[in-house]
Write a protein that binds this DNA or RNA. Structure first.
Lengths: 112, 112
DNA sequence: GCCATCACTCTACATTGTAGAATATAATCA
DNA sequence: TGATTATATTCTACAATGTAGAGTGATGGC
């Protein structure tokens, strides 16, 4: 039971959330992150899913948050930490090595 | 509680397992799939993790298996189904859209 | 028969993914 | 002013996925 949190790639949704934070840049808070994922992936996301994941990512220090009030509306703005950036990079390169050499077209063509 | 199993992208490990099945091609069974993931990603994988995931993928009909005896040794050979291929493709394109426009280099450089 | 190998199954539990109701705060307006 | 609407977040509960390690069964050599 070692749980080397390092080396373990990000979960699918964790990665989506982190990427959405990056994409919404300085305006990354719960609602915009959710909308961004919905827009880009085309599937519906529950609010709770976003915040729960954001909380867990923050606990692992892969994202950071700070309160910010704009136009009288209080928001929790998120950003990616250095460790978060590394986790994203590792997750991606690990996956790229696995996809290496796989012919997606043939995969779909073969069995339809 | 609709659970549209479609549209939901594959989990990180599910994807790794499916890719390893493709990579080991006609020799894809528990042990080789495990070894393949370990070799390519560089991290240790428990046998149980592989089989549990393979079983769940089979239940969702994303992979199929059949018994085969070679040199007196019985093995459960796995292959990717058509639906499995589509799931892989969808998972990948969904992710690619999210990564679109993100500068990994800058991401790592900025905060190190 | 006993031991070592190889492949797989089972059990149990931790982490991640998800839904939806509840709460909080400010803006609007009859 | 207090009901109403809109926005943002928190909370609760549970399902699905990820993981470890012990257990089982078959085979082959000694």
């Amino acid at each position: 039971m070692k749980l080397a949190r390092d080396e373990v790639p990000l979960g699918t949704f964790e990665e989506q959330v982190m990427l959405a934070v990056l994409r919404t840049a300085s305006d990354a808070y719960g609602m915009t992150v959710r909308r961004e994922i919905e827009d880009v992936t085309g599937r519906e996301i529950a609010v709770g899913a976003v915040y729960a994941t954001l909380d867990r990512l923050e606990a692992k220090e892969l994202v950071a948050s700070k309160r910010s009030t704009i136009d009288g509306v209080s928001r929790r703005l998120f950003s990616i930490t250095a460790a978060g950036g590394r986790a994203l990079a590792e997750t991606r390169s690990m996956r790229e090595r696995l996809w290496q050499g796989i012919d997606l077209r043939r995969l779909l063509g073969a069995a339809g």
